[in-house]
Design a binder for these strands. Sequence first.
RNA 1: UCCUCAAUAGCUCAGUUGGCAGAGCAUGCGGCUGUUAACCGCAGGGUCGUUGGUUCGAGCCCAACUUGAGGAGCCA
Length: 464
Amino acid sequence: MTKTLVRQLFRETEKYAHKNITVSGWIRTIRISKSFGFIELNDGSFFKNLQIVLEKDKIENFNEVSKLNVGAAITASGVLDMTPDAKQPFELKSGFVEINGLSTSDYPLQKKRHTFEYLRTLAHLRPRTNTFSAVFRVRSILAYAIHKFFQERGFVYVHTPIITASDCEGAGEMFQVTTLDIEKIAQSGQQSVDYSKDFFGKAANLTVSGQLNVETYCMAFRNVYTFGPTFRAENSNTTRHAAEFWMIEPEIAFADLKDDMRLAEEMLKYVISYCMENALEEMEFFNQFVDKDLLERLANVINSDFAHITYTEAIELLQKEKDKFEYSVEWGSDLQTEHERYLTEKVFGRPVFVTDYPKDIKAFYMKLNDDGKTVAAMDLLVPGVGELIGGSQREELYDVLVSRMEENGLSPEDYGWYLDLRKYGTNKHAGFGLGFERLVMYVTGMGNIRDVLPFPRTVGNADF
RNA sequence: UCCUCAAUAGCUCAGUUGGCAGAGCAUGCGGCUGUUAACCGCAGGGUCGUUGGUUCGAGCCCAACUUGAGGAGCCA
């Protein structure tokens, strides 16, 4: 039996109108009267449901079907009827229903609104709800759009390692990876751990960033990107942080900070446009039920040029408005969340690049500017989410990089392979990191990172 | 890690000044010939997060703990 997908019915309606079709899916709602009834079927291929009409005298097992619970899996055949005057454009007048899998009366998803907190406890069932079906289809489409953007421009996709024995990169607390029996070590009472006995012969961790590794491939392929999981063991409990998240890190050779920002802006506009064209129904749903200004805001992002401001200019601007802030603003300290949001939401009302931060609050590998005080770094701030992208031009001068490492308390001998890149054919290069979940949040309007990760891992929570 | 708030039926919530534990939805049964979170009737469903305290009496007041949420820091 050839199955028709509900997506096809909506996308190529003329082709299926008045024809006999067979569909399979799960019951979202069921309404039964004495001699007829309706089933809303979702087959997973499309955001919207197909209404199936059941008539007692046309369906052999009507009584059995009428007792089905929400969540049951069925296969139904019949004629696709056009219903231009009804709420739905068409419906399936069913003549045959096969029950594939029953559900029970304690099915936890009701035909009503649930809180996101409750649905987080049902991570295995929540993709069956409207909101999460929309979120995770958009997540998939966005991931594809990112690959499409970079591949169309000749970027090489590099798989940087998940496990790393590199010393700290200053990007955050790391999860240790070990095959040592820690219970045995604890019981033995020994004072220190002999990592030479560990799997890799030294201490190893899960990666906090693929950047240093991908820079090596940048120096071979010129334009490269990573897109993979990243792990941070920070004890941070916010709507924007997870212990396991996905990051996109492009790196471009023979390029400076301006090229980097141009790339970031083009990429963001590209993936948002792609999503709005390819997830129409989902985006409309978000605009209606999650964030009323979403489509307008995203259209504004696509059509306007991003703003630019240097860190120093931003500090001057914020100092004039200091009454509005809880925290004071001083040159040399990092911008607070309230400052970032004020800049992007109130001052500019669109995405803004803040550039040239003081070197002391940024990473060692960032390009030292001619003033000797700032580095060629950029953060892209967006309304609603805050920092979406962080990037920089990299320090390409061997001696400067070594002294920057020493200033940051790192031993250059631990980074021999990284320094080699400055020894053999160094050139200006730049890159950025984009938190994929923050992008999904920005595009969907969802307010909590736990609701854009299929199975979120946060402090104290690794269920499912 | 810090600050604030919350926890009552399967879900979403109400519960007055400390005095009999409530509603809607869901569930079960019955009704209904075009429903759209269908509708109408009836029924079942509770250790009020946990532990302790104050009180004649605690869902309500107090303390600690647990869990969750929001904000801050850290960051992507």
